[in-house]
Simulated scan of single mutants.
Amino acid sequence: MNGQKGKQMSESLRIGLILAAAGGFLDAYTYISRGGVFANAQTGNIVLLGVNAADKQWGRVVQYLIPIAAFAVGVFAAEQIKWHFKERKEIHWRQLTVLLEIVILAAVAFMPKELNWLANTAVSFACAVQVESFRKVRGSAFATTMCTGNLRSGTELLGNYLRTGDRELGKKSIKYYGIILSFIVGAGGGYLITEIMGIQAVLVCCALLAICFAMMFCDGEKKLEKGLQNRMCNVK
Rank of each mutant, 00 (worst) to 15 (best):
F125G: 02
L99F: 14
R135H: 09
V129F: 01
Q130S: 04
S124P: 07
V123Q: 02
M111N: 03
R94K: 15
L118R: 06
E132S: 14
F110K: 13
E87N: 13
A107S: 03
K82V: 07
L105D: 02
T121F: 14
S133G: 03
V108H: 05
H84L: 15
P112Q: 09
R135A: 09
A122N: 04
P112V: 10
P112E: 08
N116F: 09
R88H: 11
V108L: 05
H92G: 07
T97C: 06
R88N: 11
L105G: 06
M111W: 08
L96S: 04
V129Y: 00
W117T: 15
A107E: 02
I102H: 07
L118D: 04
S124L: 00
L96A: 07
A128C: 10
C127W: 03
Q95N: 12
L105F: 05
Q130E: 12
N116P: 02
W117S: 14
A106M: 11
W117K: 09
K82E: 15
S124K: 06
K86Y: 10
E114M: 10
V108C: 06
W93Q: 11
E87P: 01
S133M: 07
L96K: 11
K89G: 02
W117E: 12
A107W: 01
V129W: 02
A122T: 02
K89N: 09
E90I: 14
K86G: 01
T97N: 06
L100N: 05
Q130W: 07
Q95E: 09
V129T: 05
I104R: 03
A122H: 08
F85I: 02
F110N: 11
E90G: 13
K82M: 13
K113N: 09
L96F: 12
L99N: 04
R135N: 13
V103F: 13
E132Y: 01
A126M: 05
C127T: 10
H84E: 09
I102R: 10
L96H: 07
V108M: 05
E114T: 11
V123E: 00
K89T: 10
K113M: 05
E132T: 13
E114G: 13
Q95V: 03
F134H: 06
I81N: 00
V103W: 03
Q80V: 06
F125C: 05
V108G: 06
Q130V: 04
L115A: 11
A122F: 14
W93M: 08
V98F: 10
K113R: 10
K113A: 13
K86H: 13
R88P: 01
L100W: 08
V103R: 01
T121V: 04
K89M: 10
I91C: 03
I91V: 14
S133N: 03
T97W: 01
F85M: 12
I102P: 04
A126Q: 04
P112Y: 08
V129S: 00
K86M: 09
V98T: 08
L96M: 15
P112W: 01
E114H: 07
F134P: 05
E101K: 11
I102S: 06
V103I: 13
L100V: 10
A106H: 03
T97M: 00
F125Q: 01
H84K: 15
F125R: 05
E101Q: 15
N116V: 07
V103G: 00
L115H: 05
F125W: 04
T97S: 10
V131Q: 05
Q80N: 11
V108E: 00
A119E: 05
H92C: 07
S133Y: 03
H84N: 09
K86D: 12
L105H: 04
E132R: 12
Q95P: 00
A128T: 04
